[in-house]
């Protein structure tokens, strides 16, 4: 928290208007829980941000920029590279990354390059690139091609997304965005981070969570499979036996 306050303070200083009070951000998420039922193919939730100013706040001639970053639950990921061994291509080289978000969506009102200069992004954790760790945790030196591959693969799966036109300012101080969660998105706690910029400087930041969890039958199956696995196994076997017997009875040819 203090680091973020520090960043905001630094940003203020860069705005070259010391003394004036900063903008405050208010954020509202459409929901704090996305329930996965049997018809789940993805979900969307809206995020609304309001910039609060008072009389002492500096006027911003250029208007505000906003970046909404959605991060899924973090977990270790192994990136494998196939190499030719004799006639076969086999997974041989591996880099293991810990704490990679399973889902990343970076949305902004205009291209990130126009909002904040590239050199600051890693420190401010803005953009997909900046959210992936620098170093891998494994034998062998980290190689940039592994990190690039991870990004490429996740983007192809729709799990890493960036959209530079997804944030819309309804009024100069009210912004809105639609967070799209794909059907393959992993379960867990997601973080929505809203960052407000003006003239390339970070003014304010706000964070809120929502969770993606199974509900209803989907949840019942999962709990049964994990906690009553013997019963679940028996149930599955009986289902199979019953279907097999039914088929034999229905389609009996003799």
């Amino acid at each position: 928290m203090s680091r973020r306050a520090g960043l905001a303070a630094a940003a203020l200083a860069m705005a070259a208007c010391g003394g004036a009070s900063a903008e405050e951000l208010v954020m509202s998420l459409g929901t704090d829980r996305i329930a996965i039922r049997s018809n789940f193919t993805g979900a969307a939730l809206s995020v609304v941000g309001i910039v609060e100013r008072d009389a002492a706040t500096v006027p911003r001639a250029a208007g505000y920029d906003a970046v909404v970053t959605v991060l899924g639950p973090r977990g270790a990921v192994s990136v494998w590279q196939k190499r030719l061994i004799g006639p076969l291509w086999l997974n041989l080289d591996q880099r293991k990354y810990i704490a990679i978000p399973a889902f990343i969506s970076v949305m902004s009102n205009r291209p990130l390059d126009a909002i904040v200069q590239e050199g600051l992004r890693v420190k401010q954790r803005i953009g997909v690139e900046a959210l992936l760790p620098e170093q891998s945790q494994s034998r062998g030196a980290d190689a940039p091609e592994f990190r690039a591959a991870l990004q490429r693969l996740r983007r192809a799966e729709g799990l890493f997304v960036s959209n530079e036109a997804a944030v819309r300012f309804i009024t100069p101080s009210v912004l809105q965005a639609r967070i799209e969660i794909p059907g393959r998105a992993p379960l867990g706690v997601y973080t929505v981070d809203l960052a407000l910029f003006a003239d390339g400087a970070l003014l304010a930041r706000k964070e809120q969570n929502f969770s993606v969890t199974k509900a209803g039958l989907e949840q019942a199956f999962t709990i049964a499979a994990a906690e009553m696995s013997l019963l679940y196994g028996i149930l599955t076997s009986l289902t199979a036996l019953m279907f097999g017997w039914l088929a034999s009875a229905v389609f009996r040819r003799d």
Binding site: G75, W80, K82, R83, W89, A149, L153, R154
Partner: peptide, 20 residues
Amino acid sequence: EDLVAVPREPFSATPTETAR
């Protein structure tokens, strides 16, 4: 064929197995 053909994407990324 997948084993001998030059792979279009030589990389793959899998979440490391953890207990759910």
